[in-house]
């Protein structure tokens, strides 16, 4: 997974880059908030970003606000990493749309654990999005069987949109993944037997 690091302090960027590489993440470094915003706008995959707060052009909190406002469905995990350590800043940062907030200088073990939380959240969101897409596909099939169906009271054929009358099973098979196996229910079995018997007797009568 690629991680975006946005920090105008080259020392912070160097330490972060090295640490993330040790943990097998790819790293892209930008030095200001505008570049971070451009990168995030073009991201097509789930993205984890570590953003400094105080940066030229756009600050990290504003980058978070723009992502949440203009890309509300984007699968992005945003971490603010800053030396602004007041409670008010933590609250403001999280309310701006950051998923996590860390104070500089970071503890490497804590950062690793938090980055892995981010990766887990992104992975879960991606799986959830896939399931939603599958469900939407299934729902589209189900919708084809919705609505008022014109059915013949005598032969039970259904009239399709093309005005042709179809057997119930053909109609349903054409509009869903359902398949039919043919059998006979007990009631119809008795009726059929009676009809066959009656037909047999009638034939015997004619033969005589």
């Amino acid at each position: 997974m690629e991680v975006l690091v946005a920090d105008d302090d080259r020392i912070a960027a160097a330490i972060l880059t090295q640490a993330l590489a040790r943990w097998n993440f790819g790293v892209t470094v930008v030095e200001d908030g505008a570049a971070a915003w451009r990168y995030l706008q073009g991201a097509s995959k789930p993205t984890l970003a570590i953003l400094d707060w105080v940066m030229p052009e756009l600050d990290g909190a504003e980058v978070c606000r723009r992502v949440r406002r203009e890309m509300p469905l984007a699968n992005m995990y945003l971490m603010l990493l800053t030396s602004l350590e007041s409670r008010a800043h933590v609250i403001e940062g999280l309310e701006a749309g950051a998923d996590d907030y860390l104070i500089k200088p970071f503890d490497p073990d804590e950062l690793r654990a938090r980055v892995h939380v981010g990766r887990r959240v992104l992975s879960l969101q991606e799986k959830l999005a896939e399931r939603v897409a599958e469900l939407q596909g299934a729902l589209a099939n189900v919708k084809q069987l919705h609505g008022l169906l014109p059915i013949c009271s005598y032969c039970k054929r259904i009239r399709g949109d093309d005005q042709y009358w179809q057997q119930v099973e053909a109609y349903i098979s054409d509009r869903s993944d359902a398949q039919f196996s043919h059998g006979i229910c007990p009631t119809c079995y008795i009726k059929a037997e009676q009809e066959i018997d009656a037909h047999g007797k009638s034939s015997q009568f004619k033969d005589q």
Binding site: D9, I11, I15, V54, S83
Partner: peptide, 15 residues
């Protein structure tokens, strides 16, 4: 404020 903040951040990483 900006330059003191930048120096503070860098100094924190070198303890």
């Amino acid at each position: 404020r900006a330059t003191a903040h930048a120096l503070r951040g860098a100094a924190a990483f070198v303890t």
